[in-house]
Amino acid sequence: MQPDYAQIVLAALENGHIDRVSDILALLHPADIAALLEGLPPEERHPVWALVDPEVAGEVLLEVPEAVRLDLLQEMDSTQLVIAARSLDIDDIADLIPDLSDEIIAAILYALDKQDRQRLDSVLSYPDDTAGGLMNVDTVTVRENLSVEVVSRYLRQRGELPEHTNSLFVVDRDDRLLGILALSRLLTASPAARVSQVMEHDQVKFDVLTPDKEVAEAFERYNLI
């Protein structure tokens, strides 16, 4: 049975054991921290929120209900919000943008590199209830004329892939999608083979303005998950 962290934290706060609260937060997953904060009254929630590691604060903000998120955002300054945003994927930052002031948004944009700013602008340019609003722009793209060996070396140099990555997107010089290269295929193909020889050319595509309901139905119909 999972401990009642809310009661433990409340008792620690009442007795002035701030270090105990910090130790508990360090052990919890962001989703568990979110559940803990949601269950606390605002007067207790705020001091606990101040103890949350800034590196995981962004993930916690994504997990809490909107009312709690707005309450927590009011307790953060621009520096804290920029640090929290840096730990998130671009599409996750886009989810937070509607709740932020213009000043904070400007600070976050300034902290991003040019490519990430362009990706964020791309996501924000589409309504939330469309394919464009749903898309994950934190992806890895490659060209079809590269060899498997070169792509593999590039991935090793990169060191880390976006979460849930199981395929690379093959694009042309204008960043138009040509196909996908599954990581499983990349690992088993000859190093000398070209991406064009081992990629999958047929894939389901959506217009960026396709309603999210139609996207969900297509995912179920074609077993895309």
Results as ranks from 00 to 15, higher is better:
Ala26Gly: 06
Ala94Lys: 09
Gly16Pro: 03
Ile105His: 08
Arg20Gly: 03
Pro98Ile: 06
Asp99Phe: 07
Asp92Pro: 03
Leu27Pro: 01
Val56Met: 09
Ile90Pro: 01
Val195Ser: 02
Pro162His: 12
Val170His: 01
Ala216Asn: 09
Asp23His: 06
Ser78His: 13
Ala35Thr: 04
Val151Lys: 00
Glu103Trp: 01
Ser190Trp: 02
Asp138Phe: 01
Asp113Ile: 00
Glu160His: 11
Ser196Phe: 07
Phe219Met: 14
Leu37Thr: 00
Leu40Asn: 05
Asp71Cys: 10
Val9Cys: 10
Leu13Asn: 02
Asn145Ile: 11
Gly133Cys: 06
Met199His: 02
Ser147His: 07
Arg143Ala: 04
Pro42Ser: 08
Val82Gly: 04
Gly39Ala: 13
Val123Pro: 03
Lys213Gln: 13
Leu61Phe: 02
Glu43Cys: 08
Glu43Val: 12
Leu72Cys: 08
Tyr154Ile: 11
Thr141Lys: 14
Phe206Trp: 09
Asp129Ser: 12
Asp121Glu: 15
Asp116Lys: 05
Val208Pro: 02
Ser122Asn: 14
Ala35Cys: 06
Asn136His: 09
Glu160Asn: 11
Lys114Cys: 00
Glu43Asp: 15
Gln2Pro: 08
Tyr5Leu: 11
Pro191Met: 07
Val137Gln: 03
Gln197Gly: 10
Ala50Thr: 08
Trp49Asn: 01
Arg117Met: 03
Thr141Cys: 10
Asp53Leu: 10
Asp174Gln: 15
Val21Asp: 03
Ser167Ile: 11
Asn145Thr: 14
Arg194Phe: 06
Ala192Asp: 15
Gln80Leu: 07
Thr165His: 05
Ala34Leu: 11
Glu75Gly: 09
Asp202Gln: 15
Ile97Met: 15
Lys205Leu: 14
Leu37Asp: 00
Ile104Val: 15
Val68Asn: 02
Glu217His: 13
Val204Met: 10
Asp4Ser: 11
Glu38Gly: 15
Gly16Val: 05
Ala192Leu: 12
Pro211Met: 03
Glu44Pro: 04
Val198Trp: 01
Val195Glu: 01
Arg156Asn: 04
Glu14Lys: 15
Glu220Phe: 12
Val215Tyr: 02
Val195Leu: 04
Leu13Arg: 04
Val215Met: 07
Glu43Ser: 14
Arg158Thr: 09
Ile180Ser: 09
Ile105Tyr: 03
Asn145Tyr: 14
Pro3Phe: 00
Ser190Pro: 08
Gln118Thr: 06
Ala50Leu: 13
Glu217Leu: 15
Glu14His: 14
Val195Trp: 02
Leu181Ser: 04
Met135Ser: 08
Asp23Thr: 13
Ala67Phe: 11
Glu160Ile: 13
Leu70Cys: 14
Val48Gln: 03
Leu88Pro: 02
Gln80Thr: 10
Val137Leu: 03
Gly159Asp: 07
